[in-house]
Design a protein around this nucleic acid. Sequence first.
DNA 1: ATACTATATTCCCATAGGGATATATAGAGC
DNA 2: GCTCTATATATCCCTATGGGAATATAGTAT
Lengths: 109, 109
Amino acid sequence: MTRIALTPQVFSLISERLKALAEPARLQILDTLRKGERTVTELVEATGLGQANVSKHLRILFTLGFVERRKEGLYVYYALADDSVFQICDIMCDRLGDELKARRKLLAS
Amino acid sequence: MTRIALTPQVFSLISERLKALAEPARLQILDTLRKGERTVTELVEATGLGQANVSKHLRILFTLGFVERRKEGLYVYYALADDSVFQICDIMCDRLGDELKARRKLLAS
DNA sequence: ATACTATATTCCCATAGGGATATATAGAGC
DNA sequence: GCTCTATATATCCCTATGGGAATATAGTAT
């Protein structure tokens, strides 16, 4: 398996995708989709965000391939494209756990 | 191994850390550090960024625990704290590979 | 003390992006 | 055709943030 080389252009592409994920509102949307596909309105209700903003967030997530869409009459169903988001969340959660541990150790000293 | 629950507060913490990584300049700095510890000046030379900006980026990366620092006389040596950044880059590169593959398939049809 | 170097910080500017509101588009049903 | 609903887009406001220049700070050397 050949890895893509980490050139500045690739960093730019990675950064663009990380920016898409580095937003609590979008993480919340993706987390909701983890339970299964949802319409925009359902996502609005689940997240408490405004409809226009949910649409904008979904557009970003769709453009960068994090969600898929399926139109059915008036409704548009969005679904997770893959689980890479949560692989990344797991890595970050491990870091958070380590931070906590380090802080506790510091307090204990 | 108990996982941290993905609450809105946790998403906010994750998002804060992803924002730190979602910046080409900082990815470039981290990539340079992959080869070993470097002084600020060396990072300025390696990245072509201004000294003030490198210092600012390093401050962010240090605050969020992505780099460590070691002072030695006038110099401050920065080093990678762990490899989670590149675990994430790997995930993103896999995604980029898939995107390429999908685009090729689309062109072939 | 002064002079020099490495790093950090501050200030300013310009841009990007999120939220709210209003409007536009698309499809269903009558 | 008209109306209603779901989604998308446009506009405005405001904040956050990256880059550059200047300045401050810290350490070395003489």
